Amino acid sequence: MRAGRPAAPGQEIALTVAGMEDGEIIWGVDAYPECWDGEAWSPRFTLFTDCGGHGPVSVLYGPRLIVGLGLLGPGPEAHVLPAQLEPGWYRIRKRGEGRDLVGYLQVQ
């Protein structure tokens, strides 16, 4: 998954799965910016793409019901970064067809 150039907190980003064609992948509406905590990658927020006409949103990470809607194709898929995101490197994780898709993003 490719996230592109550095971004700012609150900025809208577009995620794309590299090397896949339309019809080759299905992925969910949610994505997770994760920080390295010294031992493992730890999610901080849940990002949702626009799947209900309200635009992309971000919320603090925690247990919640996530719509089981699959998006077909490699994207691009719009997300908005949380305004509270601190500068640094993040791993963006998504689920796609039973596997994790990951990309790295620098927040300035």
Rank of each mutant, 00 (worst) to 15 (best):
M1R: 04
R2L: 11
R2V: 13
A7K: 12
A8C: 09
P9G: 02
P9M: 07
P9W: 02
P9V: 05
G10F: 03
Q11N: 00
Q11V: 00
Q11M: 06
E12W: 09
E12I: 07
I13G: 07
A14L: 14
L15S: 06
T16S: 14
V17F: 15
G19V: 06
M20D: 02
E21Q: 15
E21S: 13
D22T: 01
G23I: 01
G23R: 01
G23K: 01
E24R: 11
E24P: 07
I25C: 12
I25H: 05
I26M: 09
I26D: 13
G28L: 03
G28P: 00
V29W: 00
V29L: 09
D30C: 02
D30W: 02
P33Q: 05
E34T: 06
W36N: 07
D37L: 00
D37T: 04
D37Y: 02
G38T: 06
G38L: 01
G38S: 01
E39P: 00
A40M: 04
A40Q: 11
W41M: 14
W41E: 06
S42T: 13
S42V: 12
S42P: 00
P43N: 03
P43G: 02
R44S: 10
R44Q: 15
R44V: 08
F45R: 04
F45D: 06
T46D: 05
T46P: 00
F48P: 00
F48T: 02
F48W: 08
F48E: 08
D50G: 03
C51P: 00
C51Q: 06
G52R: 04
G52K: 01
G53M: 09
G53V: 12
G53T: 08
G55D: 13
P56M: 10
V57M: 08
V57R: 15
V59N: 02
Y61Q: 12
G62T: 01
G62F: 06
G62W: 11
P63G: 12
R64T: 11
L65F: 10
L65S: 12
L65A: 12
I66V: 14
V67W: 07
V67F: 07
G68V: 07
G68W: 07
G70R: 01
G70T: 08
L71Q: 06
L72N: 13
L72F: 11
L72D: 15
P74Q: 01
G75E: 05
G75C: 05
P76C: 13
P76G: 14
E77C: 15
E77H: 08
H79R: 10
H79G: 01
H79S: 03
P82L: 10
P82N: 11
A83K: 14
A83Y: 05
A83Q: 15
L85M: 15
L85E: 04
E86W: 03
P87I: 06
P87A: 14
G88M: 11
G88T: 09
W89H: 07
W89M: 10
Y90V: 02
Y90F: 08
R91H: 08
R91I: 04
R91P: 10
R95H: 13
G96S: 15
G96C: 14
E97I: 01
D100R: 04
D100N: 13
L101R: 09
V102N: 09
V102W: 08
G103L: 04
Y104N: 03
Y104A: 03
Y104E: 14
Y104R: 06
Y104W: 13
L105K: 04
L105Y: 03
L105V: 09
Q106D: 04
V107S: 12
V107Y: 10
V107H: 08
V107T: 08
Q108S: 14
